[in-house]
């Protein structure tokens, strides 16, 4: 199994660059919840984010229809982002493998090594205990504005987004 105590910037950057569609399991309709923050930010950065939450089935979050479970999603999913407990991650990972996702991503505070091993054996990439919003902001240079240590140094200019004044983006390969 890959080392999941730390990830290289290149590994995370590559996952984000190659992905367009994120299924967010445990997405909340409550604006003060971290999953809502993350979904809003990732949508703004051009990702298609599909919320998954059985309690909200058929409703919408941030304009996106909510699905009860991963197998109901008919389009191609790149990343399954798990905003659930570490214990729940195993079942969700099995579904992520079944629907042909490329990446299983567990949120800050969520880690399940058994699930990670399963996903890696099936050829998926795995990220645990990280937030895609924070990683995107860190690698694009936006988190610098919040004084956060990006642990990154570079003599290259951060890339500006296509619209607006304060938008930095990652180059995409998707």
């Amino acid at each position: 199994m890959k080392n999941h105590d730390s990830y290289s910037d290149a590994y995370i950057r590559d996952i984000l660059a190659r992905s367009r569609t994120i299924a967010m399991v445990g997405a909340s309709p409550t604006p003060s919840r971290p999953s809502y923050f993350a979904m809003k930010y990732l949508k703004e950065k051009g990702f298609r984010v599909i919320p998954v939450n059985p309690g909200q089935e058929g409703k919408t979050i941030l304009g996106e229809r909510v699905y009860a479970a991963l197998p109901e999603i008919k389009e191609k999913v790149d990343i399954v982002d798990i905003f659930r407990s570490s214990g729940a991650a195993l079942g969700i990972t099995r579904e992520a493998i079944a629907i042909g996702a490329r990446v299983v991503w567990m949120q800050l505070g969520v880690r399940n090594d058994e699930a990670a091993g399963l996903a890696e054996d099936a050829g998926l990439q795995v990220v645990m205990n990280r937030c895609p919003k924070i990683e995107y902001g860190r690698l694009s240079g936006e988190l610098n504005w919040a004084g956060v240590n990006s642990r990154m140094i570079s003599s290259r200019r951060p890339l500006l987004g296509p619209k607006g004044v304060q938008h930095r983006v990652l180059a995409t390969k998707a």
């Binding site: 809003k40 902001g137 504005w145 004084g147």
Partner: peptide, 18 residues
Amino acid sequence: NLETFGNIYTRIMNPTQA
């Protein structure tokens, strides 16, 4: 709302400070 990153007003943040 702190939903996105960016500068508002130099009492709270500023790119040079950052």
